[in-house]
């Protein structure tokens, strides 16, 4: 490895970084350290930098999967922005908000109960973590099996209880509900796990003091536990927002974006344009548009990394 591969910036070395002797030696070691990033940079270049650059180029041409195209300026972009983009953006936001609204209260609630360390908590926790570890595709299949309108167990049980059978995956509203439900089933354990870790790291003193002062359980939760837990919950919420925006596998298996376009989020739409309609130029343009609308999400991810 050569020290000249990366040029060190003359900028300030952080105070907690090791101090070298002469500045020349320090600089040399600085660049050696930078080369540790070389394998990672090669991967990133091959899978992010080059593809995104190519995406910009593709988005300006009317190419498809079967033929290369000619330069058409911004036509792909106007097509994208007058097509299914806005409904897809809307349903992406719906899935994301629903994920937070459903998963955070339930996950936090379960963590609070687990944190009481009842007998058998270890076993409860192991079982409750299972869903988040399963392959999302398998999770989608499991629920598709159960939600099937004719043969699924959920309508079967509803029938036994004399409740009406519902067309879970075939009705526009219920399909959205189903996706939210399955995403929640798989990811509540993640919220629970991080909330539990957060609860266990809280100091006991404030809660004990509150108990001495006669605070009710609800009061100490609302005024002490929740405020102290806010940083952890913030990270959990940000991670869940990012992941739910990326949601693909579960929707692909459950509804493939349907019925119609009812559950077609940005990922599904981009897949459909690129690989079902084989309109790669337009798919690339949509990808660039997605990058732009997700700028606030990149900012969220930056905050998560800084935590």
């Amino acid at each position: 490895m050569t020290a000249s591969l990366t040029t060190p910036a003359p900028g300030r070395v952080r105070s907690d970084a090791p101090r070298g002797g002469a500045s020349v030696r320090a600089r040399r070691r600085l660049s050696v350290h930078a080369t540790y990033l070389l394998p990672a940079w090669l991967l990133v270049a091959a899978v992010v930098v080059v593809p995104l650059g190519l995406s910009v180029w593709m988005s300006l041409h009317n190419e498809t999967m079967l033929r290369s195209g000619r330069f058409i300026g911004l036509e792909n972009y106007t097509d994208v922005l007058t097509g299914d983009f806005w409904p897809a953006l809307g349903i992406t936001l719906v899935f994301s908000l629903a994920a937070i609204a459903v998963q955070v209260p339930i996950g936090l609630g379960l963590a609070m109960v687990l944190n009481r360390e009842l007998r058998g908590t270890q076993l409860y926790r192991s079982v409750l973590l299972l869903p988040m570890l399963l392959t999302p595709v398998a999770v989608g299949l499991m629920w598709r099996l159960m939600l099937n309108a004719d043969t699924g167990v959920i309508n079967g049980v509803a029938g036994m209880l004399h409740l009406p059978a519902l067309n879970w995956l075939g009705d526009r509203t219920l399909a959205v509900v189903s996706v939210v439900l399955v995403d929640a089933w798989q990811n509540i354990p993640f919220v629970m796990l991080l909330s539990l870790a957060g609860l266990q790291s809280l100091p006991d003193a404030p809660l004990e003091a509150a108990a001495v002062d006669g605070a009710t359980g609800w009061q100490s939760f609302w005024h002490i536990t929740l405020p102290m837990l806010t940083p952890v919950l913030g990270v959990v919420v940000m991670i869940r927002i990012i992941e739910s925006i990326k949601l693909f596998d579960i929707i692909y298996i459950l509804t493939q974006g349907g019925p119609g376009t009812a559950t077609q989020n940005l990922s599904l739409l981009n897949y459909r344009v690129g690989f079902s309609f084989m309109n790669t130029g337009q798919a690339a343009a949509l990808g660039i548009v997605i990058c732009v609308v997700l700028i606030p999400v990149f900012w969220l991810q930056k905050k998560v990394n800084e935590q």
Binding site: V44, V48, V49
Partner: peptide
Amino acid sequence: RGRFGGRGSFDGMLILIRALPGIV
């Protein structure tokens, strides 16, 4: 080495990978 040339762009790339839908 907390800081050197390219640190910010490297972090930026990692953020892109994490937050971008894979289909893009």
